[in-house]
Nucleic acid binder design. Sequence first.
DNA 1: GGCGGCATCACATCATTATGCGAGGCGGCG
DNA 2: CGCCGCCTCGCATAATGATGTGATGCCGCC
Lengths: 216, 216
Amino acid sequence: MEAATRVLIYEDNPDLRLSLSHLLGGTPGLELVGALGNCQQVETDIPRLKPDVVLMDIDMPGINGIEGLKRIKASQPKVSVVMLTVFEDNDRVFQAVCAGADGYLLKKTPPAKLLDAIGEVRAGGAPMTPAIARQVLRLFPKPAAPRQQEDSPANLSAREQEILGLLVEGYSYKMIAHDRGISLDTVRSHIKKIYEKLHVRSMTEAVSKALRQGLT
Amino acid sequence: MEAATRVLIYEDNPDLRLSLSHLLGGTPGLELVGALGNCQQVETDIPRLKPDVVLMDIDMPGINGIEGLKRIKASQPKVSVVMLTVFEDNDRVFQAVCAGADGYLLKKTPPAKLLDAIGEVRAGGAPMTPAIARQVLRLFPKPAAPRQQEDSPANLSAREQEILGLLVEGYSYKMIAHDRGISLDTVRSHIKKIYEKLHVRSMTEAVSKALRQGLT
DNA sequence: GGCGGCATCACATCATTATGCGAGGCGGCG
DNA sequence: CGCCGCCTCGCATAATGATGTGATGCCGCC
């Protein structure tokens, strides 16, 4: 029979790292070869631990997951790297995919699914959540097709973009309402719409997304 | 709850078309608005039947599925189109993805999965088989390495920078507390400090400032 | 001439943030 | 040793933000 799948974890949160370790360590057919809190030594970790699959947290202090991914792929392209993240951030997905990620999962993925995903990636699949898959598809027409000038207002209406701009400036609902001479409830309505369209659920996410994809 | 999801089928095989029709027609929450054997009249079918989701066979006589997909997307980009195919043909996948497909399933997909997929695509997901997902990822170009360098001596302590980073990612206080295994009140404390140091008074301002001055 | 998208406004309700006041432990420094 | 900054935690309150439901008027489009 074949050797167990060698799995390496990079996850800076000790709790999650521990629970992942337990999960993987207790699964037949898998061999946990390491569970590290950062990927500072990624260049030496890989040849030393020889993982088949790497679970890589995207948000880590020091060298982040995207950078770690790039380094792994640069030296050992055959190692499968599955990214773990809390948010389905468009920009991160793009970066990860471009850097050669083999999968992209949310941290809230249930344990059973996570194990499935490892099997899947070993079998040549690309585990990812539906929402992320959708984003990946949407990424396509962009780099593939010769795009023109300013677009990708993410179908935000003029008013919505305007208000998003104010959010980025740090305005509160109240300030926006006053500044634009409209009611507070109207501001709420617009922002609700913006959230829907950007697929976010808080001001910070909206601001972050706006700045990162230049919706300003 | 909202109105039922309107589904339209294009499938030239009468048997499969019939069984798909029965499957979808007998499912609560779905409304089968049509099951056509070709997409010759796709331009008029869509405005007439107003589907939310289209299941499109890729191999059809006359206008093929890829072409049908393009025409749908050209006029009604918001309609979700899930491609159905027998083979995981690399070239087809590429064409479909570039034309804006929202999902890509094999015809041998079991009925239950198919229904799941429709729900998924309505929820903003992109149903596809793992093997196809992997192909999609591989279609991506490698070049992508802008980004900046390391700095950010904004007198923030390491912990503070770390937390600011999480705010930028859209984390709430609660999520940060949980993620870092510290108390909610501690998160508050850190954020109070961050606000002081950055001279801001809200999360959005902090996020904006962080992204703009590269404190990430 | 009805339908969908946009902009406007009104409630209502629950969750999250913003802030102030404190407090204990730790480690470096003069 | 005392002082200070950092990290941790608690409590309390007022302000804001997140979400749902619903309504009105306008406009452009088959």
